[in-house]
Simulated assay, not measured.
Amino acid sequence: MASESAWSKPAAMALPREGYFEPKRGRYGPIYPRTPACYGFSIIAKVKEGREDAVRAYGKQIEQTIAASPQALAPLKLHYLRWNLFDIGSGLHFQYMGIFDTDFDKYTEDAIKLFSATGITTVFTNLEGFPEDWKTNPEAFITFVRDHHCPSFLEYGEYPYVTADEIKKALRLKDAFSDMLDQMQ
């Protein structure tokens, strides 16, 4: 009998306030650890005055981009994104939560390359303090993200440490088996 795979048991990881146990230096600062939910970060930043409609329109633009080209964001190796707008009394704020398969440095570099190559901008341009030169100045982009990052203190994975590509492969295999069984009837 084969041993039980790591993905077969849900896992949770409590993280210290800093977001990592032992600092490991990446190209742009500490590398946050891979958790049962893979990699990710959360940003909370104030929305520029009068930019709520632009933020919401950008969400619609992403929806349309993915409808037209489902692989448009594939280089980012995303599992999911979640965006929220909320007012905490000092004005409208934006929250970005993303989970992906690469470390922070690689994700950020890939995002800048993707947006630069496609001409698509980032929703972050609607946030206070976001650098105007973000496409040519990755360090400024990264500084903004790190300054607005709120590290998780708990991350949970129902299927821990599984990449998006592995999930898609398993689902393709499931479909192939279903098709094969259908053919046998």
Rank of each mutant, 00 (worst) to 15 (best):
A37I: 04
A37L: 15
P30E: 09
R27M: 10
G26V: 02
Y32R: 02
R25G: 00
R25H: 11
G29P: 10
R34Y: 05
A14Y: 08
C38W: 12
M13N: 01
K9Q: 15
P23S: 14
L15S: 01
Y28V: 00
G26S: 08
I31C: 06
R25W: 14
P30H: 11
L15C: 02
P36H: 09
P23W: 05
P16H: 07
L15M: 11
G29T: 10
L15K: 04
T35R: 14
C38I: 09
P30G: 07
K24E: 15
Y28I: 00
G29W: 08
P16T: 07
P30M: 01
P33M: 08
Y20D: 02
G26P: 08
F21L: 12
T35P: 10
K24M: 11
G29R: 07
A37T: 03
A12C: 09
G19P: 02
R17Q: 13
R17A: 11
G19R: 04
R25Q: 15
P10G: 04
I31R: 14
G29E: 08
A14T: 12
G19S: 06
P23F: 04
P33E: 11
G19E: 05
Y20G: 02
T35W: 13
P30K: 03
P23N: 08
A12G: 12
I31Y: 05
G26L: 03
P33K: 09
R34F: 06
G29D: 12
F21R: 05
G29I: 03
I31T: 14
G19N: 07
E18F: 02
P30C: 04
R27T: 10
Y28R: 01
E18N: 12
Y32E: 01
P33D: 12
A14K: 13
Y32H: 13
G29V: 03
K9Y: 01
P23D: 13
Y32T: 00
P36L: 10
C38G: 01
A11L: 11
P10F: 09
Y20L: 02
F21A: 02
P23M: 14
T35M: 06
P36M: 10
M13F: 05
P36W: 14
A14R: 09
A37R: 05
P30S: 13
A14W: 08
I31P: 01
P10L: 09
Y32Q: 00
T35Y: 13
K9F: 06
K24F: 10
Y39T: 00
R34S: 06
P23A: 14
L15Q: 04
R25D: 11
P36G: 05
P30I: 02
Y28G: 00
C38M: 15
E18M: 07
A11M: 14
K9A: 06
F21Y: 11
T35V: 13
P23K: 15
I31E: 13
C38F: 11
M13I: 04
K9N: 09
Y39D: 00
R27S: 08
K24L: 14
P16D: 05
G26M: 04
G19T: 07
P33Q: 12
P16S: 03
A14D: 06
Y32K: 01
P16N: 06
K9P: 04
P10S: 11
C38D: 09
T35A: 08
L15P: 00
Y20V: 03
